[in-house]
């Protein structure tokens, strides 16, 4: 299965983001099977690493005004969270 790609917005100093522990974040799907769903956002519970290869999915980082960071991180989504039930 091809590697999935997501991105997320980091509103604080990326250096302060904890790694390798369950955390909740909003991610956008950049590689959905149906391309019409590109950029669909979701709250997920995930593990993330600043290493590009530690977890199965690639996670691109954007800062608060949309600035794309050069190197991607990696992520494993544990579950999608539904905020409306």
């Amino acid at each position: 299965m091809a590697q999935k790609e997501y991105d997320t917005f980091i509103l604080s100093d990326p250096a302060l983001i904890p790694e390798d522990r369950e955390m909740e974040l909003i991610v956008r799907d950049l590689t959905p099977p149906d391309i019409r769903y590109k950029y669909r956002s979701a709250y997920v519970c995930a593990m993330i690493s600043k290493s590009e290869s530690k977890y199965p999915d690639r996670l691109w980082i954007r800062l608060g005004r949309g600035q794309l960071q050069e190197k991607p991180w990696s992520m494993k989504i544990l579950k999608e969270l539904n905020k409306f039930t």
Binding site: R36, Y39, G66
Partner: peptide, 16 residues
């Protein structure tokens, strides 16, 4: 909503 062609207007926007 994804059945409608909402544009990604600018690179770096938070969504469509």
């Amino acid at each position: 909503l994804f059945k409608l062609p909402g544009p990604m207007v600018h690179d770096g926007d938070g969504g469509r």
